[in-house]
Simulated scan of single mutants.
Amino acid sequence: MGEIRSIVILTGAGVSAESGIDTFRDGGGLWEQHRVEDVATPEAFARDPDLVQRFYDMRRAAIQTKQPNAAHDALARLDAQWTGELLIVTQNVDDLHERAGARRLIHMHGEHLKAWCTACDARSSWLGPLGDRPACPACGVAGLLRPDVVWFGEMPYRMEDIYRALNRADLFVSIGTSGAVYPAAGFVREARASGAATLELNMEPSQGTHWFDAARHGPASALVPAWVAEMLEE
């Protein structure tokens, strides 16, 4: 591996799993006993907004009871100490990377702890429920706030920034992702095409393991601190 100046890290549900945050894939397509298509699509929200808001109100409350784990802490340490370029792109909608201290971060699938006003397009920090149809803090219109989460069928956030970083990267690392959800599952090929070295850290081989130059398998709370220690020693 040549000199590494620029790193892009993709994190997925496997990074937060050890903090007690489940992914719908754990239940064979069920997410807290709900089918994804019933709670995580624009069509579901149009069909039954009360159900969708209740579901996200529960998850928003639950996330605030969780704590970052050793993987989040290690990535925050890398962010603080790595003197080159670094971007953490997370598919996770929790705030555990931020609470651990990470700053060079993009939430490509949005954030549970934000609300999006479909009247004025403002995004506001939001810790409480949305099911009671509160007013938007920015424009004052009531009843048009929704979770600021990218649902299936919607475009992830800041894709131009992400691809720009992938095209500049010397190293791409995928941590705790299934390799099944696009466009994130294609990031390894984008990085490889630009000459980056690629590494997978995952509990088990992902659907895209064969695209990586190297892979290490085991819990994120063990693999990530060990890898970060190696990088900072270099």
Rank of each mutant, 00 (worst) to 15 (best):
H210N: 14
K66F: 11
A135N: 08
E85K: 15
N92K: 03
R123Q: 14
A102K: 05
I4K: 07
T65H: 07
G208Q: 15
G27H: 03
A180P: 00
A119F: 14
R133S: 05
H72F: 03
R158P: 12
Q81L: 15
F24P: 10
L166I: 08
F172D: 05
Q91V: 01
D213I: 06
R216D: 08
C139Y: 00
S19L: 07
Q91S: 04
M231E: 09
R192M: 06
D73L: 15
E111C: 06
C139K: 06
D94N: 14
A226V: 14
C136V: 08
Q53E: 05
W31I: 12
Y157T: 10
A215F: 03
P219T: 07
D148Q: 10
L86H: 12
L105H: 07
H34Y: 07
G28A: 04
G131M: 02
E200L: 13
I7V: 11
G110A: 03
C120T: 10
P137V: 10
E37P: 03
P183D: 14
A226R: 13
T198Y: 03
D48E: 08
P137I: 08
E160R: 14
Y163G: 09
F152R: 01
G12H: 02
E204Q: 14
D213M: 09
L78F: 14
D48F: 06
S174Y: 05
I162K: 06
R123C: 13
E98K: 06
M155K: 13
S19Q: 04
I9N: 04
F187Q: 04
G27E: 04
S194N: 13
V181L: 05
E204L: 11
R77G: 07
L145P: 00
G186R: 10
I175G: 00
M203E: 11
E111L: 09
A13Q: 03
L96K: 00
F45T: 04
E233P: 04
W31T: 06
A193N: 10
M155I: 13
M108K: 04
Q91F: 02
Q33C: 09
Q91P: 00
A62N: 10
L78I: 13
G20T: 02
G28W: 01
S125P: 15
H107L: 03
M159W: 13
A191H: 05
L51S: 01
P147I: 04
G20M: 08
M203Q: 14
V173D: 04
S124N: 15
F55P: 00
P68G: 12
H97M: 12
A222Q: 15
D48M: 11
G179F: 02
W227Q: 06
E200D: 08
L171H: 12
I21A: 12
S194V: 06
L78W: 13
V89E: 07
V15H: 02
V150L: 00
T83V: 11
Q64T: 08
P219E: 12
Y157K: 15
E43H: 06
M155H: 11
E204T: 13
A229C: 10
P129C: 01
T90P: 11
Q91M: 03
A40D: 00
R60W: 02
G101H: 05
N167A: 13
G153I: 02
T41H: 05
T41R: 04
G179M: 03
R168H: 15
T198Q: 05
A196R: 02
G27L: 06
A17R: 13
G153F: 02
G84T: 09
E37G: 01
R146K: 15
I21D: 10
L30F: 11
L105E: 09
V36C: 01
R192W: 02
R104I: 02
F172L: 04
L78D: 12
A70N: 07
